[in-house]
Nucleic acid binder design. Structure first.
Length: 933
DNA sequence: AGAGTCACG
DNA sequence: GACGTACGTGACTCTG
């Protein structure tokens, strides 16, 4: 049938997609022979989603995948250097190119390439043909070279992110409409494709010129009218080069194509063709999914032989939910416990009524002793009667809760039985509330984190997909979402069991797969000394919580509310009308449209930026409205995030606030605090600091805060071996004043606070991977001045520059950096092209410093409980804030505690690492956190 | 759900 | 030579 109105043609940029998929997706290999297939897998997934119409867009009626042909094109005749400095194709990608073509055919789709033409030219040709025939066209690519085709029934879609690229997105990228993209590209050039353009002119300038002159030809003709002398000369000198560039970037829309677009009509998938292909690739999940969709039987995929080289990966059977057992009586449970004792280890997982370990109740327990062998022990399932007034009654077919616990406890506490959990802290806290102390244990989340931080997340779903090629049952299918969400105890036991037991099964499989790699990746020590032992320490801290004075918060809330109301009136008067002060969008319109203040649009969404820095600039120019909004925002933040939200977190029974620390959240080794985040309680402003007054000690107790002084700078001095910095720390000098003195030649006794402040900003900047732009922003000085500062700094401390170069080189070679204690932080983005390179370099510079500091405080925290016990100290460790520990202790023991814990903290690096600088810990005591800090 | 904003080290 | 930029987090609000 001829293509025409009502039809929708998808043109997939096959080469482009496969390149991006290769870099964006994990390096999957075929199990049986190690053939790299990650990009092919991503490609097939995308095709299938697209054919299903499962991309948020409607499904195509016609579809073709276009590839680059490896031969030269007419562009090389025009300009021999075109695409000449492309790096060679990665080894692991090469074999995937032909496989991708094969995949296309297996899906029954048109696979097109043509000698002498780039994929882009073919796409342009087909797109125009289809558009002229009245069909809609979607180009699946994010290649900027194709953006010139957008508009008039042609749109683009990013196949990885499923986002549409229309005229607006093109305008955001190039600053001009799609039909002028070519003109901008010819001026700006492209370093990746080696399109020369005009030297010194980038996209921004190019867009400016095109918007003024219309197109490249007109611009070149009228170049002499340009005011800026440099720009004018560049264009006159390089006119021919720009014209060549234009021919390079202009896509050919009249390629003598050998295939008709009518032939691209989508045919129903043929199970006889597509399934064998997927099975041959050993895409287990996708084979099953496609087979299910087609109503055909999935071909079996042979399991690969066990990997005998490491002895690590035994032959695991496929995950089969029907094989899991539901344990309903004591005899059945005893059988399982016996099996655990035969094994010596068991994967354990708990099901509860919620995610908050302090409030959730145990609903059931799962055990697994062998891949595929798992059971679910339901304990507190109830019948949902639909009666909201507590009409729930206990389900039949469950063991008595107390009896089950009594049978399980000896095993869970047995020193001879290893308990394997995913995110052990959660389950251990649930058990701890039932007076069960689970030990010893392993945690698959932390095993993954120790070896793979920076590479991917460490949640069970992510790990299962990556290492077991298995998609877990989403909990939502059982408990629903939103308002209709139910708690797990209301799920029918028969429905709950497969989900629950699967978690234990997967945990055990992950442990089998991941644990041996600790040894090969040299991270056993990190896991055993800095991850696993932290779990019980944090569990205790979280369970203990910190006392918070609700009335204090409540009073502050009221005060804030009144002040905000006053400010709101003022702001509305200044604006001349009412609007929502909390809406950045409305505020931007008031400031920049209605009041016409100076300030620009921001990138992607086209909204005005109204960040604090922008408002401060406006306020400094004497504008009252932005000044008031800044005040309002500060109060709004304090009220909503702290004085209001914190009250919600006070536990009804303990009267205290129980945060939760994620151990594997931050890539650098830092902890992260959630629900609530107690690591970002205000301190920098007077008004904010008063919130800390609400964190108090029990009667007769005080809060004690101990924090490392300048720990990251000390680590920098050590790692980069900066002798003068090290000496300054040994002598106990003011490090920022010392830096200032060295840099600006000001004697220490003549130091002004302003000079010191600048030196301090530079010191911090160095830790973050300094840039002139960043420092200029921070100090609000011209970029040239910032650059001069940095140059002088590197002159005075040449070791810093060397450290930065060395660490980036190390990261490029190993795709990771290490802390002094051997923690590995992977930097997969390092060496990436474009602006991401800058990010990756700075992250690589910062990670060993931030990570080493994180390691040190982890080591301290792990040692604190034993040290306190040895010193017979009462009191508790409550919170960690990256370089600070907060304790609650009886008044009379405060001084002893400071002495003991300071010892631990100042020597936490020993004996593993000897530092060339001393670590100094400062302590404070008070009735509340504001006083103690 | 994502962007914008802002709190901390 | 231009690009877009300080490092690491989490929570709240508005918006489509």
């Amino acid at each position: 049938m001829a293509i025409g109105k009502g039809h929708h043609l998808h043109l997939i940029d096959g080469s482009g997609f496969i390149f991006r998929a290769f870099h964006a997706l994990p390096p999957l290999t075929r199990k049986s022979d190690g053939l790299p297939v990650g990009a092919v897998s991503g490609f097939c997934n995308m095709l299938f989603k697209m054919l299903e119409g499962n991309t948020g867009h409607d499904a195509p009626t016609h579809l073709a995948v276009i590839f680059d042909h490896s031969s030269k094109t007419f562009r090389n005749d025009i300009y021999p250097q075109y695409k000449a400095q492309r790096p060679p194709m990665p080894e692991d990608l090469r074999p995937q190119m032909p496989l991708t073509r094969e995949a296309t055919r297996a899906f029954g789709l048109c696979c097109i390439e043509q000698e002498g033409w780039e994929a882009d030219d073919l796409i342009a040709t087909f797109a125009c043909q289809a558009r002229d025939a009245g069909a809609r066209v979607t180009i699946i690519s994010s290649d900027k070279d194709l953006m010139q085709l957008v508009g008039d029934g042609v749109e683009m879609m990013d196949g990885m992110k499923n986002v549409t690229i229309g005229p607006d997105e093109v305008h955001a990228k190039f600053g001009v409409a799609p039909n002028r993209v070519i003109d901008v590209q010819s001026l700006a050039g492209d370093s990746v494709d080696n399109v020369p353009g005009a030297p010194g002119i980038g996209i921004k300038t190019a867009a400016l010129l095109i918007n003024e002159y219309g197109d490249v030809e007109t611009l070149l003709e009228r170049a002499s009218e340009i005011k800026q002398p440099k720009r004018r000369q560049t264009l006159i000198d390089n006119a021919e080069q720009v014209r060549i560039s234009k021919r390079l970037v202009t896509l050919e829309k009249n390629v003598p194509v050998e295939v008709s677009i009518d032939a691209m009509e989508v045919q129903p998938l043929d199970p006889e063709v597509v399934l064998p292909f997927l099975a041959d690739m050993e895409f287990r999940t996708m084979t099953t999914r496609v087979a299910a969709k087609l109503g055909a039987a999935a071909p079996t995929i042979a399991e690969p032989p066990p990997d005998t080289s490491t002895g690590a990966e035994p032959d695991m059977p496929a995950i089969d939910h029907s094989k899991y057992e539901i344990v309903r009586d004591a005899a059945a449970l005893q059988t399982w416990i016996d099996r655990v004792y035969q094994r010596g280890y068991v994967a354990v997982d708990t099901e509860t009524t919620g995610l908050d370990e302090m409030r959730a109740d145990l609903v059931g327990v799962c055990l697994s002793v062998e891949a595929g062998e798992a059971c679910y022990i339901p304990l507190s399932h109830v019948n949902g009667t639909g009666d909201l007034l507590g009409g729930a009654e206990r389900c039949e077919g469950q063991m008595d809760f107390a009896q089950a616990l009594e049978m399980l406890t000896p095993m869970l506490e047995d020193a001879a039985i290893l308990k394997i959990m995913q995110n052990a802290k959660y389950d251990m806290k649930i058990f701890a509330r039932l007076d069960v102390t689970v030990a010893p244990f392993d945690d698959t989340m932390l095993i993954s984190y120790a070896q793979n931080a920076g590479l991917h997340g460490h949640g069970m779903d992510a790990l299962a997909e990556r290492y077991l090629d298995h998609k877990t049952i989403p909990i939502k299918t059982l408990i629903g979402t939103g308002k209709k969400q139910i708690t797990f105890d209301l799920v029918k036991i028969e429905d709950a069991a497969p989900y629950a037991a699967e978690d234990a099964d997967i945990t055990l499989r992950l442990w089998t797969a991941l644990k041996p790699n600790l040894v090969t990746s040299r991270t056993t020590n990190v896991y055993e000394t800095m991850e696993r032992p932290l779990v019980p320490v944090l569990a205790q801290m979280e369970r203990h919580g910190v006392k918070v004075d609700r009335d204090h918060l409540s009073r502050m809330s009221n005060t804030f509310a009144q002040k905000m109301a006053g400010l709101e009136d003022e702001i509305h008067t200044l604006a001349g009308r009412k609007f929502n002060v909390g809406s950045p969008k409305q505020l931007g319109e008031i400031l920049f449209d209605e009041m016409s203040l100076e300030g620009g649009k921001k990138g992607k969404t086209g909204a005005y930026g109204t960040g604090a820095d922008i408002l401060e600039t406006l306020a400094a120019q004497g504008n009252d409205l932005p000044a008031r909004v800044l005040d309002w925002r500060q109060l709004s933040k304090l009220k909503s995030t702290y004085t209001d939200a914190l009250q919600e977190h006070i536990h009804p029974e303990t009267g205290r606030v129980h945060t939760s620390y994620s151990i594997a959240g931050a890539n650098t080794g830092r902890l992260a605090s959630t629900d609530p985040n107690l690591q970002n309680i205000p301190v920098r402003t007077e008004e904010g600091r008063r919130i800390r007054e609400a964190f108090i000690a029990e009667e007769g107790n005080v809060l004690v805060s101990l924090d490392y002084s300048q720990i990251e700078l000390r680590i920098l001095a050590h790692i980069a071996e900066i002798e003068s910095l090290k000496q300054a720390f040994r002598d106990g000098h003011d490090i920022h004043a010392m830096t200032a003195s060295e840099m600006f030649g000001v004697p220490l006794d003549e130091m002004t606070s302003d000079v010191r402040r600048q030196a301090k900003a530079i010191n911090f900047g160095v830790i973050y991977g300094i840039s002139a732009f960043g420092l200029a922003n921070n100090l609000r000085i011209p970029r040239e001045d910032a650059k001069a500062f940095i140059d002088r700094y590197f002159e005075r401390f040449p070791g810093i520059r060397k450290y930065m170069d060395d660490i980036v080189a190390f990261a490029k070679e190993h795709k990771r950096v290490d802390t002094l204690f051997g923690r590995r932080i992977h930097t997969p983005e390092i060496g990436a092209a474009g602006p991401r390179a800058g990010f990756a370099n700075r992250a690589a510079i910062n990670a060993p410093i931030q990570g080493t500091a994180a390691d040190i405080i982890r080591r301290a925290m792990i040692r604190v409980p034993a040290a306190m016990e040895a010193a017979k100290l009462p009191g508790r460790m409550l919170l960690q804030v990256h370089d600070e520990l907060l304790f609650e202790v009886p008044k009379e023991a405060a001084d002893d505690l400071i002495g003991t814990v300071r010892q631990v903290m100042e020597n936490a690096h020993m004996p593993a690492v000897a530092l060339d600088v001393p670590l100094i810990v400062e302590g404070g005591t008070g009735a509340n956190w504001a006083e103690a800090h």
